[in-house]
Amino acid sequence: MNPFDFLTQTLRIAIPYLFAASGGVIAERAGIISLSLEGYMLTGAFSATLGTFYSGSPWIGLLCGILGGLVFGLIHALATIRYRADQVVVGIAINLLAIGVTRFFLQLAFESSSNSPRIEGFGASAAARGFDNPLLWMGLLSAPVLAFFLYKTRYGLRVRAVGEHPDAAASVGISVARIRYLSVALSGMLAALGGVFLALDQHQFTDQMTAGRGFIAVAAVIFGRWDPVRAALACLLFAAAETLQIQLQGTEVIASQFVSMIPYVLTIIALAGVVGRAVPPAALGKTGE
C-alpha cells in the first residue's frame, strides 16, 4: 500500500483518540481522574446522530454532540466536585450510564437495539480523502491548541496549579472548584467530539460504537505523561499500529488480538517506570474527604 493511504487511514483512526485524549489531559491536569472518556464519546456520538437526523445538518449534529458531552461532563463534575464522590466510581458509572441512556433512547427514537438510520456527514467528496472534513482538522489542532492554552495562558496556569497544589492555588484567590468545573465540562465536550467524528464518519450510530476507544485515550494520556502534545503523539502511534494490523489482516504475520494490546501494554510499562516513569499531577483524584 502506498504511504499516503497509510497516513490517511491512520489519521482517520486517530481523530477520535486525539479529541478524547485532549479531553482527558485537561480534566486530569485539573486533578480529576478521567475514566469517563468512553461515556462522553458514546453520548457525543449518539446526540450528534439525533441532531443530524432530525435537522439534516451535520453542523447541528456537531453542536448536539458537544451538548451531550457537556451534560455528562457536568454530571461528572457535580458528583466529584460538589458531592466529593469517588472519582474512579463516578467515571465507571458515567460509562455504564452512557451505554444505558444511548441504548434506551436508540430504542425510543429509532425503535432499534442495534443502530440508527443513515445520517448525513461531513466530507462528501471521495477525491478529498476525508481532508474536507472539518472535524479532522479540529482533531489535529486540538492538542497544539490545548498545549498553548495550558502553558501560555493564565487560565491554563490556573488549571495546572489546581491539579498540582490546590491549597496553594486557593490561597492566592483561585477558585479551585470553578476551575475544575470548567475543566471537566471542557473535557466532556472535547471527548464528545471524538464520538461525533465517529458517528458522522460512519453515517450512523451503532450500539457501543466507541468500543473501548475512550480507554485507549486514557492510555494515551498516561503514556503521554499528561502532556497534550505527547498524548497526541501516543494517539498517532496507537492508530498507526491499528492501521498496520488492518493492513496485515489475513497475512498471518501477527494476530489482531496482539496488536490490539499494544496501547495497554505500553501504558503498563510506562506506569511501571521501565523507561522514564509516568508521574501524574500531584492532586489527581483527591477531591474526597
Binding site: 454530571i75 458531592y83 464522590a85 463516578v90 465507571i92 450510564l97 451505554i99 441504548r103 434506551f104
Partner: peptide, 26 residues
Amino acid sequence: VPKQMAEVLQGVVILAVAMSVPEVRR
C-alpha cells in the same frame, strides 16, 4: 418499556450512592 431502562437505572444507582456516601457521613 425497553429492557435498557434497567441499565440506565444501574448507572443512576451507582452515581447516587457514590454521591450520597460522603454527604450522609457529613
